[in-house]
Lab assay of single mutants.
Amino acid sequence: MSGNGNAAATAEENSPKMRVIRVGTRKSQLARIQTDSVVATLKASYPGLQFEIIAMSTTGDKILDTALSKIGEKSLFTKELEHALEKNEVDLVVHSLKDLPTVLPPGFTIGAICKRENPHDAVVFHPKFVGKTLETLPEKSVVGTSSLRRAAQLQRKFPHLEFRSIRGNLNTRLRKLDEQQEFSAIILATAGLQRMGWHNRVGQILHPEECMYAVGQGALGVEVRAKDQDILDLVGVLHDPETLLRCIAERAFLRHLEGGCSVPVAVHTAMKDGQLYLTGGVWSLDGSDSIQETMQATIHVPAQHEDGPEDDPQLVGITARNIPRGPQLAAQNLGISLANLLLSKGAKNILDVARQLNDAH
């Protein structure tokens, strides 16, 4: 009898209710805020589980004197976190989706994509230029951005401005803007500013005609071990179906173009009346040469937790077992079709030249 009692006690200790789920994140304040929001949602869904947040620095956090596009290494903000995932030191990792490459290392998958916040870019102005827009900034004003995508589009749109690289986390960039006289304004992701509670610093939100956004911008991705079915089931509740389908289309477009950090590629997606609209573009580094096109596809946005595919093969690095396969494939095909259209119009040449120029500098 006593033996059975011990077995029952052991089973209770090993039951999922007692389990601590370890969540990996970057150390920056924004990353911690984003991770806290994901953990809060998981806690609400699984009140019996405990969650421990483990923060670590990544290569991208450490190399702050070089433009991201020049470092010449993929997975700048993800490699150390993936290493911890691989060694079973954490069970899942919360990322900004735009930091996750469209091809993940073997053994990993994006197990959830959370509801997207505003994906557009924002302009934050130096205190002396508050009330201005990019259009009304004085001639030769210097605007800071760490992104080739932003610089290429904005140089084309605002030729009277000069664009220079600015690195560091959000706090560091804002301090550089406010305390030094080098920059009249800087460009940042609206979602990051909003998550930090800095709505009052948003001086201008850039519309798609001015600057399309990065693939996955404004959404959070939760990376897990691809074979860890328990954790895949656990994080599945975080999937937002519309965000998922938009981001599958965007990531398929980028992957098929073979774009990345070192080339200016941008997108804009919208879901309306059962249609998914995808606009994508590529630019030369100075913005003088560009190709942009829009395509659409009829896609039914499923309700969360309709029964999805059981075999769960990944699409552009994403596993969404609780979302039907048909809409996911339709979104992926839309991204591939748009990429093929741009490639047929000469996108590869623009991107190759951009890559060579970026590598040469």
Rank of each mutant, 00 (worst) to 15 (best):
I21Y: 09
R22W: 15
G24L: 09
T25M: 07
T25H: 11
K27G: 09
Q29W: 11
S37W: 13
S37A: 14
V38P: 01
V38S: 06
A40T: 12
T41A: 11
L42S: 01
Y46A: 08
Y46C: 09
P47D: 09
P47M: 01
P47Y: 06
G48E: 13
Q50R: 11
I53S: 08
T58W: 01
D61R: 01
I63L: 13
T66Q: 06
T66M: 10
A67S: 01
K70Q: 07
G72E: 13
K74T: 07
S75T: 15
L76F: 07
L76N: 12
F77V: 01
T78C: 14
T78V: 10
E80R: 09
E82M: 01
L85R: 01
K87M: 12
V90I: 11
D91W: 01
L92V: 07
H95G: 04
S96L: 01
L97P: 01
D99C: 01
D99P: 05
T102G: 09
T102V: 05
V103N: 09
L104E: 05
L104M: 13
P106A: 12
F108M: 01
F108N: 08
F108S: 05
T109R: 01
T109N: 06
I113Y: 01
C114T: 14
C114G: 07
C114D: 10
K115G: 13
R116P: 04
E117C: 13
N118D: 15
P119F: 10
P119I: 01
P119Y: 09
D121V: 01
A122E: 05
A122N: 11
V123N: 01
V124Y: 01
F125C: 01
H126I: 15
H126Q: 13
V130H: 13
K132W: 12
T133W: 09
T133K: 09
E135M: 14
E135F: 11
T136W: 14
T136M: 14
E139A: 13
S141T: 09
V142A: 12
V143T: 06
T145K: 01
S146C: 05
S147Y: 01
R149G: 01
R150H: 05
A152S: 07
L154M: 09
L154H: 09
K157R: 11
F158T: 14
L161T: 08
L161M: 12
R164E: 14
R164K: 12
S165Q: 12
S165N: 10
I166K: 04
I166M: 13
R167M: 07
R167D: 05
G168M: 01
L170A: 07
T172S: 09
R173K: 04
L174Y: 09
E179C: 10
I187C: 06
I187N: 05
L188H: 12
L188Q: 06
L188N: 06
A191Q: 01
L193K: 01
L193N: 06
R195A: 04
R195E: 04
W198I: 07
H199E: 10
N200R: 04
R201N: 07
V202K: 07
G203M: 01
G203V: 14
Q204H: 12
I205F: 01
L206Q: 03
E209M: 05
E209C: 14
E209I: 01
E210W: 15
M212S: 09
Y213E: 14
Y213Q: 06
A214V: 01
G216K: 01
G218S: 01
L220C: 09
G221Y: 05
G221D: 01
V222S: 01
V224E: 05
R225Y: 09
A226C: 12
Q229L: 09
Q229C: 14
D230M: 15
I231L: 04
L232E: 04
V235W: 01
V237L: 13
H239K: 05
H239Y: 06
D240F: 10
E242C: 03
T243A: 01
R246N: 08
R246E: 01
I248F: 11
R251I: 03
R251L: 01
L254K: 01
H256T: 14
S262E: 15
P264C: 01
P264V: 01
V265Q: 01
V265T: 05
V265G: 04
V267Q: 01
H268R: 15
A270E: 14
Q275R: 14
L276K: 01
Y277P: 01
L278S: 07
G280R: 03
D286G: 07
D286A: 05
G287H: 05
G287Y: 06
D289E: 09
S290H: 01
I291E: 13
M295N: 01
Q296A: 01
A297M: 01
H300E: 12
H300A: 01
H300G: 13
V301H: 03
P302M: 13
Q304G: 06
H305T: 01
E306Q: 13
D307W: 15
G308W: 11
P309M: 01
P309F: 14
P309T: 07
D312P: 03
P313D: 03
V316K: 01
G317L: 03
I318T: 07
I318W: 01
T319Y: 14
A320E: 11
I323A: 03
R325I: 15
R325W: 13
G326E: 13
A330S: 08
A331R: 01
Q332Y: 13
N333S: 01
L334K: 01
G335A: 03
S337L: 15
L342I: 06
L342V: 15
L342T: 07
L343H: 14
G346Y: 01
K348C: 01
I350C: 06
L351I: 08
V353C: 01
R355Y: 08
